Amino acid sequence: MRFLSLQSHVAYGYVGNRAATFPLQRLGHEVWAVNTVEFSNHTGYGAWRGRAASAEQVGEIVQGIEALGQFARCDGLLTGYVGDAALATVILDTARRVRAANPRALWCCDPVLGDIDTGIYVKPGIDVFFREHAIPAADIVTPNHFELEHLTGRRISTLDEALEAARTLLGGPLSGPKLALITSLRRADAPVDLIEMVAVTHEAAWRVATPLIGFPIAPNGTGDAVAALFTAHWIAGNDVADALGKAASSIFAVLEITLAMGERELQLVAAQERLVAPPRRFTAEKL
């Protein structure tokens, strides 16, 4: 398969395109990575160098790929961190162009806003762009727990609350995303030593749980990798449960290696064999 990926880039570490591209390539897929920012490292370190790409630059790169006639071969569009609200128009326009060339292409929108332990870490207005424009136009949306609460204005403590909130992102049955994937759910009515991912459609929902790995500082980029892996597996097999189980198994294997090596950044290269063939398999259950 072939993916167009508009996400952030860091020279050091693995978030955004750096977290999504290698796993997809290791699974045998082509990725056309367009970087929305060029940073030395992700912002979780508190200090970084670099800058956001201009909307004009990102748009020109996208149009250059389109001019090669490649959009007709694009199976999926991945979008994530948006460094500047000016990029909003470019992202929406890119989705329209890809779909015009290949109506079967799916858009996975990762509404990167923040996390439970950091709060919001994007510029003002980015959340409005995701809530009012990007999410209603996407096919798949992949918020983490914090982002789901922020986007829906709801506190989520139970599985039922999570399912209800996720379905508000789906909109009506004839418009809006086909599926919402909660990439990290931490609810009060679940064992404290587990972390869950939940996939929700209008008709059904699936849950997979993996052991919670205790890091001194949790690695960034897991959501970016999961969104890419899930999308690829879902497009390949059209099976939500299978895609959810495979994505969870792969990221758990990467996190195990990362902890064993004592690293703060996802060890995607060191764990590449386990990324493709995880030693421990987790199965998603239908709720």
Rank of each mutant, 00 (worst) to 15 (best):
Ser8His: 04
Gly69Arg: 08
His145Ala: 00
Ala205Thr: 01
Arg26Trp: 10
Asp127Ser: 10
Lys123Asn: 11
Val62Cys: 15
Asp224Gly: 12
Val58Pro: 04
Tyr14Gly: 03
Phe39Arg: 04
Asp84Cys: 02
Thr258Ser: 13
Phe22Ser: 04
Arg97Ala: 13
Trp48Phe: 14
Arg2Val: 02
Val122Cys: 13
Ser8Pro: 06
Thr168Pro: 09
Arg99Asn: 04
Glu164Asp: 12
Gly16Pro: 09
Ala232Trp: 10
Arg264Tyr: 04
Gly221Pro: 11
Phe282Asp: 07
Leu275Phe: 07
Glu265Tyr: 08
Met197Ala: 10
Glu203Trp: 08
Ile195Asp: 03
Asp239Trp: 07
Ser8Val: 03
Ser40Glu: 00
Asp117Asn: 12
Val226Asp: 12
Ser8Glu: 01
Glu30Phe: 13
Ala53Arg: 08
Ile182Met: 12
Arg280Lys: 14
Leu287Trp: 02
Gly245Asp: 11
Ala241Lys: 04
Val34Lys: 08
His202Asn: 04
Phe282His: 02
Thr222Phe: 01
Ala209Pro: 11
Leu287Arg: 00
Ser5Gly: 05
Ala284Trp: 01
Phe252Leu: 07
Gly153His: 05
Val208Asp: 05
Val240Leu: 10
Thr222Ile: 00
Ala260Val: 12
Ser250Glu: 05
Arg2Thr: 08
Pro124Gln: 12
Phe3Asn: 02
Ile182Phe: 13
Glu149Pro: 03
Arg187His: 06
Ile91Val: 15
Lys246Phe: 03
Tyr45Pro: 01
Thr168Tyr: 08
Thr283Ile: 09
Asp115Ile: 07
Glu132His: 06
His150Met: 07
Ala101Gln: 03
Ala20Glu: 11
Val112Cys: 14
Val31His: 10
Leu275Ile: 07
Phe252Thr: 12
Gln272Arg: 09
Thr152Leu: 04
Gly214Ile: 07
Ala284Thr: 02
Lys286Arg: 07
Ala53Phe: 00
Thr201Pro: 08
Ala270Trp: 04
Leu255Ser: 05
Ala225Gln: 13
Leu24Ser: 00
Gly76Lys: 01
Pro216Met: 02
Leu174Thr: 15
Ala188Tyr: 06
Ala11Pro: 03
Ala209Met: 03
Thr283Glu: 11
Ala95Lys: 05
Glu132Ile: 09
Lys123Ala: 12
Gly223Thr: 07
Arg49Cys: 05
Glu60Gly: 11
Thr118Ala: 10
Leu4Gly: 04
Ala100Tyr: 02
Phe230Val: 14
Ser184Arg: 09
Arg99Ala: 03
His145Ser: 03
Pro103Ser: 06
Arg131Ala: 15
Thr79Pro: 02
Val141Gln: 01
Leu159Arg: 14
Gly76Asn: 12
Ala11Ser: 10
Asn41Lys: 05
Arg97Asn: 02
Val226Trp: 13
Asp160Ile: 00
Trp206Glu: 00
Asp193Gln: 04
Trp32Gln: 09
